[in-house]
Design a protein around this nucleic acid. Structure first.
Lengths: 333, 333
DNA sequence: TTGTATGCGTTATCAG
DNA sequence: CTGATAACGCATACAA
């Protein structure tokens, strides 16, 4: 069942059939109707492979992420896919894990599939050392590279980021202003985004007139129990803190559980702020004040930018989205 | 940069280059090496579009789900993608939402992309009325249809399901055996899976020697606050219950919040069991006893089955996975 | 408005 | 072991 069959049945050439398929206006209404009828009658569907070969594109975007089951990434993927499909593009999903070599390997793989662009979802794709990002600059010579919550300067590389520094700065400052004297910052890694957040925390501590203390900046694996135990250990070791600011909601949940266990009242004895405004922040009692980093905005912006890029339009290399602090029960402001 | 360029540089025919690419053994070691060297030197990558056209397959599977940001579905997608990629297949993601028409539309869309098979993820794809599933039977004439946690009999349709009936039956019975007299069943819809669960609940109530009462089977939207308020309303209306069995963890979280609000002690005054054993079940205090329905097993089984199907192997149309009750703090057994 | 002819980059079937 | 050549199904430049 191909374009030839249709052309025969409709008594026209394949060129005309092709024109009908592609909505070319240079077809008389009469023949157009006849061809459409035949197509329906035969149940004809154009062969995308043949079309792709000629046009050298399949209208497909590669979406890379470390782990699509991570709540934030899952939500991002949801919006990206929806938005891309709305623009007539398919999405090939590719979960790369967190290892640099595999990220690189999968990027190559997607590239060999001739996708029209690649979206790197999440802040884990930008490494601290510039040389570790060279492969992205290299790839961007062939196709547009879109960064969701990550930033890198380069030709054909487009970043849409949430202003994490400002968000954490603001959150920390509010804690101090509400009477807290010792805000512990709990974070889960050294990604681009995490480094920004940490720097926001540092600046806030200084601007609030306090000392930045190493023992109050705590690295911890992205796990509820780990966070809880970490805080417990720190407290027992004699370090005092009356607020926890976390780089992820799950760590903030850990903080709530720690408070429960230690018999602390929230927010009186311990204030807590999470990050991402995910469903997790609503599962605890009290519910967790959390930074909403606007996944949906970031993703729709990314896709809109990409569409403009693919239409050869001129677009900025970086767009910044402003986060918002959602106040709930773990803070007293 | 194509196979002709390589053939010229290597002084062989394109047939030989093609043989090298595809690992055909009928090539002398010497020429193979020469060709490989040239390919590397030129940075040649085979054009997947041309290859697809010839072979009439792109080694790509369509993954449909209602909403990839739903935690259970997100996890399923993660495992499916990983497993498929391990077998050399790409995954095209397609979020269809919950409306029958759009599900149908997107199925057709994926079909027109000539994917090698379609995986329907989640129990929302099987409708109660047989006629509403006819389109799946129709599609299955062209390609394998895999159901993840849904069941439908038909040629080229393969189901991998969790025994939800048994899981809920078992959970409810344990509640009664632990001294509960009035177990409220809270559920969020009438999908295939939900109907199975409900029937498991009913059977357990009877087998425990109690009456099945309509007011204890409560339909509620899949939302934390909705669940909490629903329970509150029911309780105020004079209906007594000392246990809540939920069809989703999020509803169980709502039950925990209800207990907090109503001043009930968990599990003494109110026992709670959730479903899915998701991260949500660990966020509350106490943590929620929940049914683990083995997402990973279901997904790897699905992909393994699919691979056998694509190799023309003989495989069963239905595989059942046994769930497991994970005991935590919201029950006293 | 319609038709003819050609190219897109492979794979696979033959013949050597 | 290697090479020539015909599909694969479509889009499009050019001709009519």
């Amino acid at each position: 069942m191909n374009i030839y069959d249709v052309s025969e049945h409709a008594h026209v050439s394949i060129a005309t059939v092709s024109r009908v398929i592609n909505g070319n206006p240079n077809v008389s209404e009469k023949t157009r109707k006849r061809v459409l009828d035949v197509m329906k009658e035969l149940g004809y569907t154009p062969n995308v492979f043949a079309r792709s070969l000629g046009l050298n594109t399949m209208k497909t975007i590669g979406i890379m992420c470390a782990d699509s089951s991570d709540p934030w990434l899952a939500e991002a993927i949801y919006y990206l896919e929806k938005e891309l499909r709305g623009n007539g593009y398919d999405s090939i999903l590719c979960c790369t894990g967190y290892l640099p070599e595999t990220k690189k390997k999968y990027l190559e793989l997607l590239r060999s599939k001739r996708v029209d662009a690649i979206i790197l979802t999440g802040s884990h794709y930008i490494e601290a050392k510039p040389k570790d990002n060279v492969y992205l600059l290299e790839a961007a010579k062939d196709l547009p590279i879109m960064l969701v919550n990550g930033q890198l300067d380069g030709e054909q590389i487009y970043s849409t980021v949430c202003d994490d520094h400002a968000a954490v700065y603001d959150a920390a400052l509010r804690l101090y202003r509400s009477g807290r004297s010792s805000v512990l910052y709990l974070y889960s890694g050294n990604s681009f985004s995490n480094l920004n957040k940490l720097s926001g925390y540092r600046d806030a501590v200084r601007d609030a007139g306090f000392m930045v203390r190493d023992e109050l900046m705590v690295l911890c694996s992205k796990d509820l129990d780990a966070a809880m135990e970490r805080l417990d250990t720190i407290s027992r070791s004699g370090v005092y803190f009356d607020a926890v600011l976390a780089s992820e909601d799950i760590l903030a949940v850990g903080a709530v559980k720690y408070a429960d266990k230690a018999g602390l009242t929230i927010p009186k004895d311990l204030s807590i702020i999470g990050y991402n405004n995910s469903i997790l922040s609503k599962c605890t009692t009290p519910e967790i004040t959390s930074v909403d980093n606007k996944v949906e905005s970031i993703c729709t912006t990314t896709v809109n930018t990409l569409m403009k890029v693919l239409e050869e339009g001129n677009v900025p290399g970086k767009t910044t989205i402003t986060p918002e602090l959602i106040k709930r029960g773990t803070t007293n402001f």
